[in-house]
Design a protein around this nucleic acid. Structure first.
Lengths: 142, 142
DNA sequence: AAGCAAACGTTAGCAACGCAAACGTTCGAA
DNA sequence: TTCGAACGTTTGCGTTGCTAACGTTTGCTT
């Protein structure tokens, strides 16, 4: 109420609302995979950017270092990721994805591909959307 | 790592990663507003769709009814929203936004507008992006 | 008209996640 | 050599989402 004329809905809210729908959709997928969204994001980062020390992994994924610890413990216990001593720095760990982790990631991509979440968009629009998203992400440090 | 050729990053992950950047950016805004993102989303829904009973508000915002209770208590204690008895159904509450809530919403929109989160996009691209987002949201029930 | 399944808001409990502060260990620069 | 900074870790707290249950009210069915 009492909203001025020409008031435009903040884009962030629209995205957030959309993410809530996506979260609903994906809960069953997560259930099948037995893994949470943050853990999946970690695997994506590891798969695309090779071995990373945890501090760098935290920067890339925007997941706090403290939160990352428990996440990596879980991933390691399932043999989806691996912590190895970093030869160049005895403080750091070189975290890498395992073959099992890569396989799970592929399965996750298949699940999203089979989902009709983006059905309202044509292939062309979908490509535009992805491109704009990528541009935004790169602009904010990948 | 064992990712097949032509493997495309799940769009959902890209959006999620972007949202994490946005969350970082907005934390200070929330700090100034003294309110969380879910509460802001509730206010947006109330401002754009008039008085709503809590069950409907839950559907629109995708926030669970149980979570909504504490959220509305908080909003009501700050006089940003109001619960009134629904004359048509004695079980339901007619939730509406107050003038103070509307003012806060306007302030939030100003904060996002002054943010350069979408600086990497031209005005034209930004419009395209918003349009695609809106299409997706409408396709999933608004 | 009475009974009953369903919807309403609420509460309580649990799990996941983000964030802040502190710690011991290790590095790198003064 | 000394000292500040970075690394991973632990602990604690707050927020949020979900499930299950509850008393109240509704509306359909019989």
């Amino acid at each position: 109420m009492a909203l001025p004329d020409g008031f435009t809905l903040p884009t962030g809210f629209v995205i957030d609302r959309l993410m809530r729908v996506a979260a609903e959709r994906w809960r069953e997928h997560y259930g099948e995979l037995g893994i949470g969204k943050p853990a999946l994001i970690v695997l994506v980062a590891l798969a695309t950017e090779g071995p990373l020390r945890q501090a760098r992994l935290s920067e890339r994924t925007r997941i706090d270092r403290a939160t990352l610890v428990a996440l990596l413990n879980e991933l390691e216990s399932r043999d989806l990721a691996r912590r190895a001593p970093d030869p160049a720095d005895r403080r750091a760990h070189a975290v890498s994805i395992t073959d099992a982790g890569g396989a799970l990631l592929i399965r996750a991509a298949e699940l999203e591909a089979s989902d009709d979440f983006f059905a309202a968009l044509t292939a062309r629009e979908r490509a535009t959307f992805d491109a704009l998203l990528a541009r935004l992400l790169v602009a904010h440090g990948g």
